[in-house]
């Protein structure tokens, strides 16, 4: 397999045609576990109000990349820049506070909390600190408003007081995103938001993601090619830890390297 490494350290290919400001950037980002290089020298740009999908076969290093981006893992080399500031070795909770909101591949809501309580907890991260012991959490108006706003946006307004565990899988995935929204993020990093969903649930989620794409820069890890092509403006393809292509969706779709390496077996329809 001839893989062409096109990730130049400075600028991604679409830089010339896109003048929206850069929100998040990685420079030569690398993570090695012992001898295994999970992410190799990845340099990517993520822009304001742009939906950027990262695709690649299982084990391509996408999830590791997300962990590096959000501080859940510390990289072995390279940098992560958020609004121009170096956040490379910041711990996950600080990264989240800076405004990089992240959802998880596996549903990670708090099952015994109601929808609202889940979002309210997330919204508490907007308080300067949650080391507040006296007043009940429900008495913080701004937190409540933010939680309700997030519930509304993720389409769970009518499920407000349902216990998370009693909801359908698709609704729990929505709530997962609602929680990210409630943290008041500046950029959304969504790790396989469509994983495990039925057709109807998927369509609903794609609609939600489209809506979010108009408000936030969206970084999307996804396997569902239909969804990716209907949502993303920019596409990055990773194989074996390496970014083999990154650019506007149309260009990537035409790329021979990508066809060979990835799209060839998984997405004949394209």
């Amino acid at each position: 397999m001839s893989v062409m490494i096109k990730s130049a350290p400075e600028a991604a290919p679409e830089a010339a045609t896109d003048d929206r400001p850069t929100v998040l950037e990685t420079r030569g980002l690398t993570k090695a576990f012992g001898g295994l290089v999970a992410v190799n020298n990845a340099s990517l740009l993520f822009r304001e109000r742009q939906t950027h999908a990262i695709i690649g076969p299982n084990g391509a290093g996408k999830s590791t990349f997300v962990h590096l981006l959000t501080g859940h893992l510390s990289p072995s080399g390279g940098q992560v820049l958020f609004m121009g500031a170096d956040i490379t070795h910041q711990p996950a909770h600080k990264v989240a506070r800076l405004g990089i909101g992240r959802s998880y591949q596996k549903t990670n809501v708090f099952p015994s909390f109601t929808c609202f309580e889940n979002c309210r907890l997330a919204a508490q991260s907007r308080l300067s600190t949650s080391m507040r012991f006296l007043r009940p959490a429900k008495a913080y108006r701004e937190t409540n408003d933010l939680a309700d706003w997030a519930l509304d946006l993720c389409g769970l307004k009518l499920r407000r007081d349902r216990i998370a565990a009693s909801m359908s899988y698709g609704e729990q995935r929505q709530l997962e995103i609602g929680m990210v929204l409630a943290t008041g993020p500046k950029v959304l990093v969504l790790d396989e938001p469509l994983a495990g969903m039925g057709k109807e649930e998927s369509e609903m989620m794609v609609g939600l993601l489209k809506e979010l794409g108009t408000r936030f820069p969206l970084i999307l890890i996804e396997h569902d090619m239909d969804a990716v092509f209907s949502l993303a403006e920019v596409l990055t393809v990773m194989v074996n830890g390496t970014v083999i292509e990154s650019g506007p969706v149309e260009a990537i779709r035409a790329s021979q390297a990508v066809q060979d390496a990835y799209l060839g077996d998984g997405a004949e329809a394209y």
Binding site: H72, A96, Y104, F110, S125, S130, P136
Partner: peptide
């Protein structure tokens, strides 16, 4: 009182899923 406070909510959530709480910014 403690359990109903913002502090208590965070601690309760930590008992369920610590990593998720970290991801939310605590």
């Amino acid at each position: 009182m403690l359990l109903a406070s913002p502090f208590g909510r965070v601690v309760r959530a930590i008992g369920v899923n610590e990593n998720r709480v970290r991801g939310l910014g605590f």
